[in-house]
Design a protein around this nucleic acid. Sequence first.
DNA 1: TCACTTCCGTTGTAAATGCAACATACTCTT
DNA 2: AAGAGTATGTTGCATTTACAACGGAAGTGA
Lengths: 222, 222
Amino acid sequence: MDEYIGIIQKTPLFKTMSAEETKKAVEYLNGRVLDYKKGTYIFQRNEKIKNIGLVIKGEARVEREDYYGNRSIIASIGQGDIFGEVYACLENTSLGVNVIAVKDSKILMLNMNKAGLEKGFNQELYARIIQNLISILAFKAYSLNRKIEHITKRSTREKLLSFFSEQAVISQSSSFDINFNRQELADYLCVDRSAMSLELSKMSKDGIIAYNKNHFELLKHS
Amino acid sequence: MDEYIGIIQKTPLFKTMSAEETKKAVEYLNGRVLDYKKGTYIFQRNEKIKNIGLVIKGEARVEREDYYGNRSIIASIGQGDIFGEVYACLENTSLGVNVIAVKDSKILMLNMNKAGLEKGFNQELYARIIQNLISILAFKAYSLNRKIEHITKRSTREKLLSFFSEQAVISQSSSFDINFNRQELADYLCVDRSAMSLELSKMSKDGIIAYNKNHFELLKHS
DNA sequence: TCACTTCCGTTGTAAATGCAACATACTCTT
DNA sequence: AAGAGTATGTTGCATTTACAACGGAAGTGA
């Protein structure tokens, strides 16, 4: 276990913790490192999970299977990423997705039960873990909310303006850089890349925005 | 305060608690009932909030203001609903929306700081509040995730099938009732109601689904 | 410099969507 | 049963979008 502490420590769940504290925390949470062969299930649909997974080595994939058996990839999970935290915190909800190892992987399983508090563990440390968990969940809800706000806009132009407007507010300036390339931005906003490029051109012609590569500026209009 | 315990107790934050425990819990969380006149701000953009609000009486509205000053309504919050829980749990993120009283309102403000744990409060009770908070946040992330999965589908038909497929999986049956009427379903999936109705007809003609009012059935195809 | 790749913008076309307007069906009240 | 009001289905049309295909620009490595 000790050899992995470096990776473990970097995850948001153990934020603000020293290596020593992380080690203790992992112990509190009943941490166990499990090996999964490429192609095997880590979590399976309809399971009720109580553990959060943390990828120490390898890679996993979250897949959803619909009514017809069609599979679609929801997310890829690499080293240092955690998964299952939402379902592990929902007692009455069984997993709606499969998590599969796409390479031979080592996964740290952490039991997030409230049990820890009662067993005379270091309470201050436990409180920090819980605090971190809350931050992770809150940030997730926050991010998803922002995304939904953009993609619920009906037209490509509105989606772009919604996104740009947010960026402007965040950077407290009418001009800002974005972290997406065109394809990524199109995926994020759920539109076609070329259609988006076209719309960007139009918006520029209409004098609403100006841009150069990944630098954008909102021009004063309404 | 005591007169409101009935309302307070019903919120998810105090789930599984008796009236007596709820009273204690509110005390732990430094609960204060504040009055807001119609039209006044409860929370304002750029604030860093530490309190969760709970509507005891009246009604509030969450609004976002974009770069151009245009306002749009994000949500309405009525008696028994809580708000601000996501931002209150994010230390470094200031509020991106305004919360405004749309009627004269009484709001219970609850301080969710980790402070409680240290001050010799009833630990078991505190743990349950935290557990409830975690459940609320996890459920929020879960719900948003599901919605995003549906609305990121590119066509109306795919969105509908994504939604129906989930309903089928949930009810473990190919036929099920839905809780939305057409307009609500259209809003949820971010499509035009009439276009959606048309698509439903087509899907029925194509033999993919059968439906009557709010009862739907997925027919075996791929 | 020359291939090679990746990213981005442009064009044309077919298809999907939003929108408005109307028709029909259902619900509720009196 | 009548009538009002609401929910749902249908139609036609204008617009938007996705998709495919291409060309140019910029970056990379030999």
